[in-house]
C-alpha cells in the first residue's frame, strides 16, 4: 500500500470518527441549565477542528501525490520496504486473537485458568520449543501472579462465573 493510500484511509477514518461523534453530540442531555458553558460545547469544538484538519489532510496529500507523481513517478518509496510473507505477518494477528480470547475468557472462567491457557499457548506460538517448559512456565507464572496480587496485595483478580468463581475462591 502506498503512503498516499494510507493517508487517505487514515483521514477517512478520522472523518468518520468525527462525524459519528458529531451526530451523537446532540443526544447529550443538558441537565443543568445554569452552566454557562454546557457539556456539548467542548466536544463540538474538538470534533469540528478534527473534521477540518482531516479534510485539509486529504486535500494536502492529494496535491502532494499529484506533484510527486508528475516529478518522480518511477521509484516508489514504498517498494524499498521488503514484502513480508503471509505466514510471518500472521503471527502478530494470531497473538492478537489469543490476547483477545484471553481477555474475554478472563471474565467468564476467571484469571487462574485463562492465564494458564494463555501463557501456555502464547509461549508455544512465540517460539518455546518444549511443551513441558511451556506448562511449567504457565503454572509457575500464574502461581506467582496470584500470590503477589491476590494474596499479598489483596486485589481480587477476575474470578469468572459459576464453578470457576468457586474455584478461584479456593485460592484467593
Amino acid at each position: 500500500m502506498s503512503n498516499v493510500m494510507k493517508d487517505y484511509i487514515f483521514y477517512s477514518i478520522v472523518i468518520l470518527f468525527a462525524l459519528f461523534f458529531l451526530v451523537m453530540t446532540p443526544q447529550i442531555k443538558i441537565t443543568n441549565g445554569t452552566f454557562i458553558i454546557g457539556p456539548r460545547h467542548w466536544p463540538y469544538i474538538l470534533l469540528t477542528l478534527m473534521l477540518i484538519l482531516a479534510i485539509f489532510g486529504i486535500v494536502k496529500s492529494y496535491i502532494l501525490a499529484k506533484k510527486s507523481k508528475s516529478i518522480e513517478s518511477k521509484d516508489h518509496e514504498d517498494k524499498i520496504e521488503p514484502e513480508r510473507t503471509f505466514f510471518k505477518l500472521s503471527i502478530p494477528m494470531i497473538s492478537l486473537v489469543l490476547v483477545i480470547l484471553y481477555v474475554l475468557l478472563l471474565n467468564a472462567i476467571g484469571f487462574i485458568i485463562s492465564t494458564l491457557l494463555f501463557l501456555y499457548g502464547i509461549s508455544l506460538l512465540l517460539g518455546q520449543k518444549k511443551q513441558l517448559y511451556s506448562i511449567i512456565f504457565a503454572v509457575l507464572t500464574t502461581v506467582v501472579f496470584i500470590g503477589l496480587f491476590s494474596v499479598l496485595l489483596s486485589i481480587p483478580l477476575p474470578r469468572g462465573l459459576g464453578i470457576f468463581r468457586q474455584l478461584s475462591l479456593l485460592f484467593y
Binding site: 478520522v14 447529550i28 442531555k29 441537565t31 467542548w42 466536544p43 470534533l47 477542528l49 478534527m50 482531516a54
Partner: peptide, 25 residues
Amino acid sequence: GLIGVLFGLMISVIGMDPLTGTLRY
C-alpha cells in the same frame, strides 16, 4: 499531530461530565 491531540482530548470527554454530571457518549 493535531488530530492526535484532539483524539486524546476527545477520549477524556467520554463518561460523566465532571461539571454537570451529564453522561456523555
